[in-house]
Nucleic acid binder design. Sequence first.
DNA 1: GTATGACTTGAAGTTAACTTCAAGTCAAGG
DNA 2: CCTTGACTTGAAGTTAACTTCAAGTCATAC
Lengths: 146, 146
Amino acid sequence: MTIGEVAERADVATSALRFYEREGLISAVRSEGGQRRYQREVLRRIAFIRAAQRVGLTLDEIRTALGTLPESRTPTAADWQRLSRSWRPLLDRRIAELERVRDKLDSCIGCGCLSLRICHLFNPDDIAAEEGPGPRWLLDEEAVAP
Amino acid sequence: MTIGEVAERADVATSALRFYEREGLISAVRSEGGQRRYQREVLRRIAFIRAAQRVGLTLDEIRTALGTLPESRTPTAADWQRLSRSWRPLLDRRIAELERVRDKLDSCIGCGCLSLRICHLFNPDDIAAEEGPGPRWLLDEEAVAP
DNA sequence: GTATGACTTGAAGTTAACTTCAAGTCAAGG
DNA sequence: CCTTGACTTGAAGTTAACTTCAAGTCATAC
C-alpha cells in the first residue's frame, strides 16, 4: 500500500505517518523510485498507536511498548493482548480519578459548602494549608504516584 | 500577599501566576514599587483554574467561564456552584468514554479475537472500513460531537 | 509520452501551557 | 546604609504531536 492508501484506511494524515516513521513507531519498504510501500500489518500497528493514545499514553511510551514486540516474526494475538492488558490499571486509575472529581463536585454542589472553609474543593488554603500547599484532594494521587 | 506567598499556598510557580495574569485569568494590585500584591480571593480563583484543568478544560475555556462571574462584587457560593455544575456533563462523557475503552479492551482480551477481522479494537480496516475510515468504535463520540 | 496527482525531503511553523533568561529594581533585616 | 533575596519585564525557549512549506521526483491514466 502507498502512504496515501494507508492514510485513508487508518484515517491518519500522511504527514503523521512520516512522523511516526521518523519516531520509530512504524516502518515501510521502498519502491524502486524511493516511495514508501506499506504492508497490511502496519494498519494494526497504527490502530494500536491510536488506541494507546486514547488511553493516555505518549508516543514515547507507545514506542517503548511496541519495542517489546518480537522483531523476528509477525506479532500474534497474544503479543497484542499482553500490551493492551497492561493498559488496564492505568485506565482504572484515570477513571477513578475522574469519578472522584465528579463525586466531589456533586457533594460540594449538593451541600452548598463552596464558601466554607471546610470544603476542600475550593479551599486549598486555611485548613488544607496545614497539611501542605495546594488542593490536596486533587493532587493526592499524583503526590502518591511516582 | 506577594506573588511568592501565593505561589507557595496555591502550589503554583510564580511564572505561572504571571502567565495567568497575562492571560486574563487572575489579577493583582501593585505595591508602590510596582510589585504584585494579591487579595486572598485569588487563591479560590486559582483553585478553580486548577480544578477546571483537571476536568479537562483549556485555559481558554476557563477564561470564558471566569468571565461570566460578576465583576462588581465578590463571587458567591452560588456563582462558583453554577460554574462547577456545568462541568458535570463533560465529566460524565469523559468517564463514559474511558469506560468504553476499558470494556472494549476487556472483551477483546477475554475473547482473544485480536487477530480476527470481526474485532473492531484492532481492525479499523476490513469490515470497519465499509462504514468509513478509522477505528469507528474509538472515534464515534468525536465524530458525533461538534 | 505527457499531464496530473501522489510522493519525496528537510526545515520551519503550530498550539498549549508554561519555564527560563537577562538585566535589572524593590523590600526588609541587621 | 547595605546586603540579600524576592520581585520586575519582555523575549525567547520547551515539549508533544503534528502540520505546512518549498522545491522537486515518481507513477499512472490516457
